[in-house]
Amino acid sequence: MKQRIKQIVESRITEDGIIETGIKGVSLFRVTHSIPCAPAVYEPTVVVILSGKKEAILDGEHYIYDNSQYMCCTVSMPVEAGTPEASSETPLLGVYISLDTKVMTELAIEMESTTGAIKLPKSSSQPPGMSLANWDDPFSDALLRLLQLCENSADTAILGESRLREFYYAVLKGDAGISARRAFGIGNEIAKSIEYLTLNLSKNVTIDELASIVSMSRAVFHRKFKQATRMSPIQFMKSMRLNKAAMKIAAGMNVNEAAMAVGYVRSSQFSREFKRMFGQSPKQWSRSKDIIENIT
């Protein structure tokens, strides 16, 4: 089944880059040269690799995955991502599937309220917001059925939403299901706090404010947040701000404008924290980076 999926993708994308499939949130990508890991922000998404390897770094931990596992990110995460091993001999080929929050939430709540639905474990621990998951038959079948639509525009228009919903359901039932159901279903306080935080990066949001929003004590919120993201809320906000700024600078934005856009008032503080995180000043970064957007 994987081979058939790979054949469909290969037939659709023959040059480096990323292309839309016609199904909302579903894209195909191909890379044949090495791209060093660089700051990025993963939104809720599933990334499927069909050939080659991809790498993401979260708070110092390396996630390297190929066609044996897919990556599932259930909340916005500041990472470094790239394709350091891609080449013309071993091209990176894959599928990027954005997770629609509304549909995922509907499915997760429906699963939790349906008799016999898979239950979340009775545990106080918070599952990670980014994980690698093994392919299973329902996942492979749902992905194949989804991508087969790309071969016919009428099928895509008529069946796209229902096949995408079927794929989401396979993710919720699979290896990454616990994290996905916790992020989109009942008990999704940490996901809500991350969404609030990412929407207010330019503001001085405090831990007490975030804990209050999701009706948790400061201590419990801090513990669960770190379980989900590997970072404290303060570390997470700083990483998210600096990653967003690095992406803006790489895309051509002025350094001072990028700093202000993510909430830094003093350029000296921004430059100091930027260099501490990335090993280069913002100006050095803007001169040295040649990043292919979206293939992260």
Rank of each mutant, 00 (worst) to 15 (best):
A117H: 15
P128F: 02
V46D: 00
R218N: 12
T14F: 08
L149V: 03
P84H: 02
E85Y: 09
G187A: 14
S212E: 11
A261V: 01
E112N: 01
I118M: 07
I35P: 03
V26G: 02
E89D: 15
I13E: 02
S215D: 11
V47T: 14
T101M: 13
T114H: 03
Q69P: 06
L143E: 04
A250W: 00
R276S: 11
M71Y: 11
N200R: 01
A259S: 13
L159W: 14
L99E: 05
V31E: 12
L149F: 07
L199C: 15
P36L: 07
Y63A: 03
V255M: 05
V31F: 05
F139N: 12
E195R: 13
S271R: 07
V47W: 11
N67V: 07
A211T: 09
R181A: 00
S27Q: 13
V255I: 12
V9L: 11
I64W: 02
V255R: 09
V9Q: 06
T229I: 00
V95Q: 05
V9H: 10
N294D: 12
L107P: 04
F225K: 00
S179H: 01
K238D: 11
K244P: 00
D136R: 10
G82T: 01
I178E: 11
K289Q: 15
S281E: 10
R163D: 00
L159H: 02
D290I: 06
S215N: 09
H62R: 15
C37N: 04
S288E: 14
V79I: 08
G279N: 01
S179G: 09
N134R: 15
N188Q: 04
D155I: 08
E161H: 04
D175Q: 12
V171C: 06
L199I: 10
S113V: 13
L132W: 07
L242W: 00
Y65P: 00
T74Q: 06
S267R: 13
L28V: 10
P91N: 04
Y65F: 12
I13V: 03
I207L: 15
S193V: 13
E43P: 08
H62V: 12
V214T: 00
P138F: 10
M260F: 04
Q7T: 15
E55T: 02
S125M: 05
I207G: 06
F167V: 02
L144Y: 15
S51H: 04
Q148T: 08
K283G: 12
S124C: 06
E55I: 07
S123Y: 04
R223M: 14
V205C: 08
R287F: 06
N294L: 11
S76T: 15
K275P: 12
A251K: 09
Y42E: 04
F221S: 03
D100K: 02
V46W: 01
D16W: 07
I64Q: 04
I5R: 14
I194K: 00
R12L: 14
D155F: 14
L146I: 09
K2R: 11
E110I: 13
D290G: 11
T114L: 06
G94F: 03
I8L: 13
S162L: 08
S124H: 07
E257H: 11
S202L: 09
G52T: 02
G185E: 05
S125N: 09
D100A: 08
I49N: 09
I213F: 14
S113E: 07
N256S: 06
V48K: 08
K54N: 08
L197M: 12
Q126N: 02
L93V: 00
